[in-house]
Amino acid sequence: MKRILTAYVIGAIFGLGISLSGMANPAKVLNFFDVAGTWDPSLAFVMGAALLVTFFGYRYVLGHNAGPILDKEFLVPTARDLDGKLLGGSALFGIGWGLSGFCPGGAIPALGTGQTDVILFVAAMIAGILAARMLMTFRRPPAPTQA
């Protein structure tokens, strides 16, 4: 119960941060990238502040504790190699982000406003996640079959 309540409060801090920052607003997000048009540099301040807090916060948390308070261990990704899947996927995400103005972390909190466009985006995004998973499964080398 403590874990669930903690997770909920942390999610709410994230959602409030997204709401204040403007990341839940596709018009604002798209304007950040539209340097040649209606440019709005606000999102640089979102990214800058978030990075600053996380950089020093992570250093403190990961440097001064053997593990998290409510779980067994810190689950931090260890992979370091760059591959086509990472870069191709990220390029694809960038295209979708540029078309819609929503990234997952902007859209999920925006669901709280109840606007239809957000619900449609999240539904399409979940369909995309499931489609990519199916494609990944199909493209795995097939197990040797017996004749």
């Binding site: 996927g89 819609s100 539904a123 399409a124």
Partner: peptide, 11 residues
């Protein structure tokens, strides 16, 4: 855009 975002973030 949503569909492409979903695929992209998964890969």
């Amino acid at each position: 855009g949503g569909f492409i975002v979903g695929m992209g973030v998964t890969y």
